[in-house]
Design a binder for these strands. Structure first.
Lengths: 160, 160
DNA sequence: CATAACGTGTGCATCATGCACACGATTGAC
DNA sequence: GTCAATCGTGTGCATGATGCACACGTTATG
């Protein structure tokens, strides 16, 4: 009966997700990555920096929603990133309430260094993966995440 | 050239992972889950509760390593779980330094309720998935996580 | 217009976090 | 067998992050 197998697969899948979350949330993992990239940056800040790089230009409130933190907390952290010269603030042309955050060229250098470091660190993992398995994991995980996002906000999700 | 496609897939895969982490770390997601399960519990605590349920019996230091937090922090949080009657502490028979943490029947009821709630909430996502895609995602994500864990600690990983 | 809703940021109080440290138990070196 | 080093555990303490209440200017709504 495949319904039973599907239940087992879903439980098993969730276990893997929990393991993945735990693994990625380990502080020492970020430390290794930052060291490999030659970057000195607080962990909370570098998560935000990546978020800004991905969704720029972006306001504080939207960034806070994506990060799941209070907007006042994010406001202060973005201010720190601006002080460090990694992020630039500027008023939005469309909505003058908004002070958009954007990556500076210095900030871009940091995120590029992080990407390159991660690529080097994870290269050994994929050496033994076939093309097919890699492409399939890419496709299926993307679909999984998109489905979860869609379920969360079927109509008002800007990523949809 | 497939080497190029592999690079693209790896970048793309990492994006999906980042999205997944962000999604799972949203505080409101835990709130929804806790509400659906009818459970009142702090988020930090319920993460630990799941960890204890999975690896019990487990000491504070090992649990702290898995959670990536300081052992003193975990010690206090486990004490709270014990106060709530969700976790039991007992001296280890093998090593009298260790005070093992175990799930109580009450704690088990909570984790079961959380599992059931998550199952209900995510059921719509999988309705449109074929058996093959579901099983493949299960298999490949498990392998991905295992490979990352092995890379991290090739010889001394207890999960290996 | 007038009123509500929104984006942003500051003051403030609280709580989690991690370090220094201590204590009992275990291991290992000799 | 003895003693020092290591380990698991937990407490005191100080720092820092976090979120709430609030305020100000801007935009949307009627």
């Amino acid at each position: 009966m495949t319904a039973r197998r599907r239940l087992v697969a879903r439980r098993h899948l969730h276990e893997s997700v929990v393991d993945l979350i735990a693994l990625m949330n380990l502080p020492q993992r970020d430390d290794v990555l930052l060291a490999e990239a030659g970057v000195t940056l607080d962990r909370a800040l570098f998560t935000l920096l990546v978020g800004i790089e991905r969704f720029q230009p972006i306001g504080v409130v939207e960034l806070a929603d994506r990060a799941g933190r209070d907007h006042t907390t994010v406001s202060r952290q973005v201010a720190k990133l601006a002080e460090l010269g990694l992020v630039e603030r500027r008023p939005s042309a469309a909505d003058r309430r908004v002070r958009e955050a954007l990556i500076t060229s210095e900030g871009r250098r940091v995120t590029d260094a992080l990407d390159a470091a991660r690529h080097r660190l994870t290269a050994p993992v994929f050496e033994r993966w076939t093309d097919r398995d890699l492409f399939e994991l890419d496709r299926l995980l993307r679909r999984y995440v998109d489905d979860l996002l869609t379920m969360r906000a079927p109509e008002d999700d800007p990523d949809a």
